[in-house]
Every structure is written in C-alpha cells, then in structure tokens.
Amino acid sequence: MSDEQHEPRAPLPVATLDDPQLQFSAKHPRRIENLISLSFLLGMICMGGFGAAFWQNWKPWTLGATLGAGMLFLGFGVISWGKYLMPQGPFVEERHVLASTEAERDAMAGAIVERGTVVVRSRRMMLGLLGGALGVFSIVAIIPLRALGNLPKTTLTKTNWRRGSLVVDSNGRPVHRDDLQPGGLLTVFPAGYETNEQTQAVDQTVLIRPQSDNLVTEPGRDTWAPDGYVAYSKVCTHLGCPVGLYEEELKILVCPCHQSIFNVLDGAVPKFGPAPRPLPQLPLYFDGSGYLRAQDGYDQPIGPGYWERS
C-alpha cells in the first residue's frame, strides 16, 4: 500500500493454482469440479424427492430425509467450492481506528451543548418541566396495565369447598361409603364445580382410603377421615403441581414435578423434597344416604406460598 495510490485501490489478488490451499485442485484438475457438480446433481434429485413426498403426502420421515439429504448435498457442494476453488488468502486487512481525534470529539460535544443554548435563558427549568411531564406520562401510562387482570383480593385464600359440599368425582358422581376399597384413590371436587377448569385448579382434592377404619392424621382431626377416607388438597404446596402419585405400600403422596413426598397417615406433612408445608386436609363425613360430604372448607389457603398468605 503506497502513499501515492489515489484512485480505486488495488483489487484483491485472484486465486491462482500456485496458492498452497488450492494445491489439491491443481494436482487433480476437474476432480473437485466433478465432485461438486455431482453433489449439486444429487441435491437436485433429493429436492425433487422432497417435492414428491410433499405432493404425495408421504410419511413425515420421508420429508425430513429428502429435505435433509438435499440440503446436505447442496451444503457439501457449496462449501467445497468455497474451500477448494476460491481465493483463501490469507489476506490481511487493516483495521481503522474507531476513535476520532480529540478535536472531533470536542466538536461533537460542543455541537450538543452550544447549539441548544444560543438564545435560551431558562433551559434547565424547561428541560426539568419537560422531564417531569414525561415522567407523569410514564406513570399514567401504567394505569391501563391495571386492565390486564383482576386484583387477587381474597381469591387465593378461597376454594369452593363449603360446609356440606357433596364430594363428587370428575364425572359428577357422588362418592358412596362403599365406593373405594382400602388402597383406592380418587380425585374429587365439590359438586357443581367438577367440570370447570378454573375451579378444578383450586378445588382438586385427592381422596384416599389407606385403611378401612377411622383415621386420625393429627390431634384435633378425630372425625375428619371417617372409615379411612382421607382427603387432601391435590395442589402441591411447593409449586402447585397436582400431587398425582400415590405409593400404596408406603402410604405416601409424591409430587411428580419436584419430588416432594407427603405422608398420608400423618397429616400430609412433607417428609422429603422442597415442599414447605403439609397439604391442607379436608374434613369429611357421611350424610344420611352414605355419601361423602365436606364438614367444612379447607382451614387454610391451598397451594404454594405467597406474600399475603399469613
């Protein structure tokens, strides 16, 4: 690069067969070109095959295989062309220094500072007011976000289980005293709320009959599990997954998401894993016709913890 050079700068050298990286094509004239041509031809055939598979609606794997093989051949051909028949250099290019001169930097800063202050006296105050107005706007602009959803209020603390709620399965069938054999398990809901996804999410309760006589899981819960029918909220207290695995032999409920383990006989106290609290227990009783009902709703919010939960 000479200093006398003015108009268009010199072209990049064209690849010659003397270049070390082109030795292969120099030694085997046309071999590379034939290989690349063959690759493109095979690519073309595969692409045709892809078209045929698409047109005929063949099985998905034929689509993937033809498209993939076609692209593979095209890629192989184009890369070989670039690698064996094009100038590799190495060429060296100078970097420009990105930084400008001090004078240019000062000129830019000066342009920003000075141009705006020619005849203005109270620029600071006006800018302050403009900033304030934009600040108020940005706060006000948050208000529409309020429409994104309801406020939580007490939603998180409530389920649809009430005093006397009839216990039904997902098909709305009430659960009779004789329905579950010892060892049996059923997911239940309060009658009237069993088909709605929204209520299922909070009301889902796992009904287990680990034994056939009354079960006292905790002191003070003497009547909660008549004939061994015990019911716990199915919403894991860790992250809200349904606690869906019941291990009959060990009488434990396992959450498949993060492996929290709850002891069914012992008030569903977590024995293992990240769950912080027992699954709330639903107190049950049999009505006059022998159907299961809730003595009351849950005595605490179900599911994972949150700030407002006391």
Binding site: M71, L74, G75, I79, W81, G82, P87, G89, F91, E93
Partner: peptide
C-alpha cells in the same frame, strides 16, 4: 487476517446454512 467476504466467505457460509 483471513479470507474475503466475496466469494470465499459467502460460499462457505451459504454452504454452512444449507448444512
């Protein structure tokens, strides 16, 4: 130091896109 955008890099990178 390396190979130029055209044609070498374009060819290699297009081929690589196919790959």
């Amino acid at each position: 130091v390396g190979s130029p955008m055209f044609p070498t890099f374009i060819a290699k990178t297009t081929g690589f896109f196919f790959m």
